[in-house]
Design a protein around this nucleic acid. Structure first.
Lengths: 235, 235
DNA sequence: CGCCATTTGTGCGTATGTATC
DNA sequence: GGATACATACGCACAAATGGC
């Protein structure tokens, strides 16, 4: 591991254990240089990384200050599937069932949205998330077959992202998300236990690989009362 | 302006105008050194910044590649007031009216939530956002008076954040956000044109200064059909 | 396969600028 | 003004990944 990463991890650990207390000032760059026997540039890279990850805040002329712990706890940032968030927030797990798994030619609206050639093959997957005996979330995923080959129903029952990153070795780069309320559709009614809610919260997700190629479009449709989204925004 | 920022801006501009095309490779660090008469470290800082802001992707041993344009458009990340987002998305401006402005002792639920001493003074502000002749968003803000002194109704009519950062010189550090649907309240009915929607989308916002002190709690209550939230998540 | 040129990644040392106290 | 601390910039050396030969 790179030296600046080692320093980063060591410092992060000392903040987590409380050795460096919240609100306190970290040793100066010069002190850290000696302590870790590194150059100033290396120490600075470690500190930059700590700031980027929300551990500390640097202040020109004053020093580097440890931020309060609770900031780091709610790191729902980045690309996480919403069911994961949901599960972790409620402290319970969700049962997932694959309601539909097919290989189709991309419909025209999808091809246009994703910038695909006509007739590109995609996997279309419907997954229903059951919580406390009720179906409350419907995920409809579209994956480009060329970019995510070998997807199976078994994989879909677990974590597709894990498959993409670990098995295929593809690096996911970024996702565009949109959240809005929509009228309930027939599909929603057939898959979810909607009671008499007339609206669902829909999260659309366009996910891209590192070269900027889009490999996924997903709609995550949540029953109104079971939807919640959290994140932490930083300046 | 720092040299690496100048290089960053120049390169970003050349990508925006299409001089550097999407998917293409940028000149190597050595070439950029000569072109901008800068050291390699400086060029690298500019490139790092470009990557952080989603313009390019660096690849060890291969080069730096321009990402597709549409990625950069939706940069709603960071801390932005939701009305700003909303306005920029529709390409029109929203009219804001301050429906209520008072200085009160923090109610107990708020004191507990924000970790305040009992009887701490806070400003309570209600603002209504009118779009196309309809009141569709109600913002209820609570600001700790000690941390945001001198707030007035006039300031609330414009940008409170701007006041905090420019006039008070306070640095806003991060915000915790939550989005969920809630039943319509009496207050919603009295302030908004709700038609017969029974639910509103509520964004709660806890905002902190750089030392980790919370100075704001806000609820932004949106009529269901007028709510939309976008962001870009990066790994 | 190995070798090599290219390109980005890491690390060091140094000098100077700027903010804070 | 002086001391301290972070910010910027330069130059150099070597490591590691990539791709062509």
């Amino acid at each position: 591991m790179a030296k600046y990463r080692q320093i980063y991890e060591r410092l992060a650990e000392r903040m987590k254990t409380g050795e460096y207390e919240a609100e306190s000032k970290l040793p100066s760059e010069t002190e850290l240089m000696h302590e870790y026997e590194a150059s100033r540039g290396t120490v600075r890279k470690a500190l930059d990384l700590l700031q980027e990850h929300g551990y500390v805040r640097k202040h020109h002329g004053k020093g580097v200050f440890v931020l309060r712990r609770d900031q780091i706890e709610f790191q729902f940032n980045g690309i996480v599937s919403f069911s994961e968030i949901y599960a972790s927030m409620l402290g319970r797990s969700i049962e997932t069932s694959v309601a539909s798994f097919e290989e189709i030619e991309a419909p025209s609206w999808l091809a246009e949205r994703m910038g695909l050639e006509p007739a590109t093959l995609v996997y279309r997957i419907e997954r229903v998330r059951n919580f406390d005996g009720e179906n409350v979330i419907l995920d409809v995923n579209y994956f480009v077959k060329d970019l995510v080959p070998g997807l199976t129903k078994q994989i879909a029952e677990h974590s597709i992202y894990q498959y993409i990153e670990r098995e295929l070795g593809q690096q996911i780069s970024y996702a565009k998300r949109k959240i809005a309320a929509e009228d309930v559709t027939e599909l929603d009614r057939s898959r979810l236990d909607l009671h008499d809610y007339e609206y669902v919260i829909v999260i659309t997700n366009d996910t891209f690989l590192y070269e900027g190629r889009q490999f996924e479009y997903t709609e995550s449709r949540h029953r109104l009362d079971k939807f919640q989204f959290s994140d932490v925004a930083r300046r």
